[in-house]
Design a binder for these strands. Structure first.
Ligand SMILES: [Mn+2]
Ligand SMILES: [Mn+2]
Ligand SMILES: [Zn+2]
Ligand SMILES: [Zn+2]
Lengths: 142, 142
DNA sequence: TATTAAAGAATAACGATTTTCGAATACCCG
DNA sequence: CGGGTATTCGAAAATCGTTATTCTTTAATA
């Protein structure tokens, strides 16, 4: 995995830097779908000198070489995901967390849409909104 | 249809103004899913004095009284749709147009997700992106 | 038609995200 | 090891859809 990103960076003419590896590691080891600020914060401990600008530029590159997908979950900022598989997401409108949704055959849906619309689809985003299990517990008073 | 919006505005304590009717007419008579700027532009001919701020405020009201839905098609701005049925959208990454996708049973998909996750879902947003038939012809992307 | 509160026009302001800038640093190739 | 140059840092600035403001106009009611 780390080997993969190193090769991909070099192979695309990008230098391999600790910052780039670190940003990718954050995304590869979380299921939280962080935005740029969250990535930046989580690197403060290990990379106190990391610049937010570097996070943004690194994400651009990681996206360009196919290692990171960009999520628009209807918030002000973008979220990022190193899981490049075709899966949907659900955002809790109470606490803001974004979880994976794997119980959806996205490829099948895509095929149906492609047949119906005559578009050649290159991607898709499914977002669901609701209340996560934890917030349901806390908000019993509803 | 115009009768409907008039009643709804009055019934909700809003005044019926030419601007409000005009904004709704644009949305009711197009399939282009315009954003605020596009609505504003398309009204320049008939309402040269229309303010962009009025477009925004009117959309708020139309949304509030259930006449317009707000779309997040993965762009910087929101798009609006007077078709209140539950349907998905597809955006052409070449020319930016946004088309309807009626070949998707969103309610069915939502039920599946709700069963699989433990979220209590309150809404969803699907959008697909790809290359529309016309842009495929022009070979902008082979 | 007069009254009055709501609404519109025009434009300034907003504000969080994202980008830019220039000097310092460090990756990488030979 | 160096030299060349991509990259980083840090702060500042831009971005830009949307909202607030101020003054003017208008819809609704009787
Ligand atoms: Mn994910
Ligand atoms: Mn539509
Ligand atoms: Zn929650
Ligand atoms: Zn197109």
């Amino acid at each position: 995995m780390s080997k993969n990103i190193t090769e991909l960076l070099r192979g695309n003419g990008f230098k391999v830097t600790p910052q780039r590896l670190a940003v990718y590691e954050v995304l590869a080891n979380t299921k939280e779908h962080p935005n740029a600020e969250m990535i930046f914060s989580s690197l403060q401990a290990t990379y106190p000198t990391m610049s937010l600008a570097t996070v943004y530029k690194t994400i651009d590159i990681l996206h360009e070489i196919g290692l990171v997908q960009i999520l628009n979950a209807g918030e002000d900022s973008f979220r990022y995901d190193a899981d490049m598989s075709n899966h949907a997401h659900v955002r809790c409108v109470e606490c803001g967390r974004v979880d994976d949704v794997f119980d959806l055959d996205a490829a099948k849906v895509t095929r149906e849409i492609e047949a119906g619309t005559r578009y050649r689809l290159t991607g898709q985003q499914f977002y669901f909104y609701g209340v996560c299990p934890e917030c349901q517990k806390q908000g019993k008073a509803h």
